[in-house]
Simulated assay, not measured.
Amino acid sequence: MDKNQLEALKNLLSSPQKVVIIPHKNPDGDAIGSTLGLALYLEKLGHSCHVIAPNDYPKFLKWMPTEERIIKYDQTMKHAIDLINDATLIFTLDFNHLSRIGAMGEDVEEAKAPCVMIDHHQQPADYATYMYSDTTMSSTCEMVYHFINMLGDIKLIDQNIASCLYTGIMTDTGSFKFASTTGTTHRVAAALLDTGIDGFKIHSKIADTNSTNRMKLLGCALKNLVVLEDYKTAFISLSKEELNAHDFKKGDTEGFVNYGLSLEGIVFAVIFIEDLQDNFIKLSLRSKGDFSVNQFARNHFNGGGHDNAAGGRSDHTMEATIEKFKAILPDYKTQLYEAYED
């Protein structure tokens, strides 16, 4: 983080603030972990904090310390807007463009309070007064740890804060196996474990909570798996009908895309999921090596993210979206083979 910005922010935090902390829409473990961890830390400094999520999130994240405090914008909109308007400081975590929080974006843009961005995604927008952006970081939770350290308060990290931050690091690194995992990531995780938290229990609460319907939905997804060997690519599709047939709940498809990427010889995997309410297709994209799914998603599917993990959307039908995807692949054949050979 820029030293001048850090000093200015440190000065601002030297007196009590009314803080609002916001994760992205459809928040994941990193988004929830970073917002809760930051809120718990700032409250130790004497600040008043409210965490406002654009919408709900998966059940497997609802064990986290003080999770019940999170306000859902889409459920209590007036209350959420009042808090945003009354805030003296707004933190936006795990996203870098206001479009990632849906309708809340306009409220944040119109708010008088300065914004602080803490995020590790590529190509940040310039809405924030204070920006801590680092695309080399494994997760926003790792960045919150470093942010607390930069403010000289590492000793304030207790077991509740550590549990939140460890969860986000663990989930965003795929249990420490993604390329974004560095030696520093492991050292941060070790420091968090040293507070006395139980890493095994955290892993279990995230990963060992499958319902029967989710497991059967995974079977359906794998049955729909298509492998395009000529392009080192695999994709999965799930329709509304298939989701409804398995009593789909938010978070049920988490990690499904990685099954395609786990195949030998595959460097690019995608899952196409039909939205249950609106007429669009959600894409999750994953890759190995130097093949950038961030750029692929930005170029063709109104999305973005990281080089090896990104999201996108299509307003076409499932069939038309898949046909578009397959038609694009020949343009990337050389890049895909280069990523495979690496």
Rank of each mutant, 00 (worst) to 15 (best):
V108W: 05
S99H: 03
S211P: 12
L151I: 02
K201L: 10
N160L: 04
E242H: 11
N299T: 06
L238S: 07
H300C: 01
G199F: 07
E242S: 09
E274T: 05
Q75H: 07
G303I: 04
R313S: 12
S14L: 09
F200S: 02
T167S: 06
T321A: 10
M318A: 08
D126L: 13
I32Y: 04
F176Q: 07
L276E: 11
L12R: 14
L225S: 07
Y231F: 15
F248T: 02
T35A: 06
I71P: 00
V108L: 15
A310L: 13
L89F: 11
T171K: 14
L329Y: 07
L61S: 01
T140M: 00
R298E: 08
G312M: 12
A269Y: 09
M104I: 02
T92M: 12
D230E: 15
A245L: 09
L217H: 12
N96C: 10
Y259G: 05
T129A: 15
A103S: 10
I154D: 02
G196R: 00
P58D: 01
H120K: 12
A111V: 03
P124L: 11
I52H: 10
T334K: 10
Y337F: 10
S287W: 11
D198H: 09
E241D: 10
G152K: 01
M77V: 05
H50P: 00
F176E: 01
I22A: 09
I281L: 04
L165G: 10
S139D: 00
N244Y: 05
E264S: 14
A221H: 12
P16M: 01
A269H: 08
N258A: 11
F248A: 08
L217M: 14
N302H: 09
M117S: 14
G312N: 09
K205N: 14
K3I: 14
D153C: 03
T185K: 07
F325D: 06
L9D: 08
D342K: 11
S284Y: 10
E242A: 06
V108E: 02
L42D: 03
P58L: 00
P54G: 01
I206W: 06
R69T: 14
N244W: 05
L9N: 08
D278W: 01
M318H: 11
E341A: 11
F147N: 05
V188H: 01
M77A: 12
M1F: 12
T334G: 00
S175D: 01
F178M: 09
K333R: 13
N224T: 13
I90A: 09
H24A: 08
F147W: 04
G260W: 07
P23I: 02
L329K: 00
F147I: 02
C164V: 11
G305Q: 11
H24I: 10
G304D: 05
K177E: 08
G37K: 05
P330V: 04
V257N: 13
G260F: 14
N213C: 10
I322S: 06
M77W: 00
L283M: 14
T334V: 11
D56I: 04
N302A: 03
T35I: 06
H306A: 10
N302R: 03
L6G: 05
G260K: 11
M64H: 03
V257R: 12
N294L: 06
H186N: 01
H316T: 04
Y332Q: 05
A309L: 14
Y259P: 01
D153P: 00
R100E: 02
Q75G: 01
H316W: 05
